[in-house]
């Protein structure tokens, strides 16, 4: 029996990477680099919150969120070298070619948040997927009320995008607050978890939207702290991570309860996820 009408095999399979050339490679921290990429054929244009699958030739493929401009500009990915594939990607010099599939997944609801205050809470590498949303809000500053960016990192050396954080902090129309979990001598900023910054953030909880990205346990506690400030749960969004092999909802690896993170996420309304995140090993 013939398959359903939609069954026509696509011209190019969703599993086939599109070659891109490395334009630039910038070291962010001891183990993290940012690559700017230029397509050799059709461009991949992710929106804030989405991710691409990056393929290091002959090594493997990993999901990496977009961390460049929301619209226009080169394809930008910030990658932490923690495994064989990410180490190979971070070692690519300008001119090298890698494969890209994408863009995949859901976006930060920048349109929905427009008109309200915007609170962005980032933990560690979680700042990378949030940077396109922050850049978007700052480029269209009048679309939002108060904008507050709260950044946490394990140590001062783990802070991402320090020059850009400093530029944002020099502006009078955005609050940028930074804290580290632990610091050695020479750090004059705050010490403590990122949740400690939430009570003092300048946004009005009654009319604020919050975007949160970081380790899962950090997001759980940030959501709790936001609820304690009376930010409504339905105005909070989180970005989640799971093992992803296909990115197109076919391989099953990225399931979290009823969701497929690659298809239904990675950006989710916190209301849909907090109960699931409370269940161990789900």
């Amino acid at each position: 029996m013939a398959a359903p009408a939609s069954a026509e095999a696509p011209v190019r399979g969703a599993m086939t990477p599109v070659p891109h050339r490395v334009l630039s490679r910038v070291q962010e921290t001891a183990d993290t680099w940012t690559l700017e990429l230029d397509p050799l054929s059709e461009p991949v244009q992710p929106r804030a919150g989405q991710f691409d699958m990056l393929y290091a030739f002959g090594v493997g493929e990993v999901p990496i969120s977009t961390s460049g401009d929301h619209e226009g500009g080169p394809l930008t990915h910030t990658i932490r070298a923690v495994g064989a594939v990410t180490r190979a990607l971070c070692a690519l010099e300008p001119g090298a070619v890698l494969g890209v599939r994408g863009p995949f997944g859901s976006v930060w609801p920048l349109g929905e948040a427009a008109g309200s205050d915007l609170l962005v809470v980032a933990g560690g590498i979680g700042l990378a997927p949030l940077r396109p949303a922050i850049r978007h809000a700052l480029a269209r500053r009048d679309d939002y009320g108060a904008v507050s960016v709260l950044v946490g990192a394990r140590t001062p050396d783990d802070l991402l995008y320090v020059p850009e954080l400093e530029r944002w902090r020099s502006r009078l129309d955005v609050e940028v607050d930074v804290t580290v979990d632990s610091a050695a001598a020479g750090w004059h900023g705050r010490v403590g978890l990122v949740t400690t910054l939430i009570p003092g953030a300048v946004v009005d909880p009654a009319k604020a939207s919050a975007f949160v990205c970081g380790p899962e346990v950090m997001m759980t506690f940030v959501v709790r702290a936001l609820l304690e400030r009376d930010l409504p749960l339905e105005r909070i969004w989180v970005s989640l991570e799971r093992n992803m092999r296909c990115a197109v909802g076919h391989c099953g690896h990225c399931q979290l309860g009823p969701t497929l993170i690659c298809r239904d996420g990675p950006v989710f309304p916190a209301a849909a996820m907090t109960r699931l995140l409370e269940v161990r090993e789900l």
């Binding site: 029996m1 398959a3 069954a7 095999a9 399979g13 969703a14 197109v248 076919h250 298809r263």
Partner: peptide, 22 residues
């Protein structure tokens, strides 16, 4: 069929084998 053909993305290899199967 639902998983591989009726979502946002079509699984190319499955579609090639499934289409025209008797």
């Amino acid at each position: 069929d639902r998983v591989f053909l009726e979502g946002r993305y079509v699984e190319r290899d499955y579609a090639l084998r499934r289409t025209g199967a008797f």
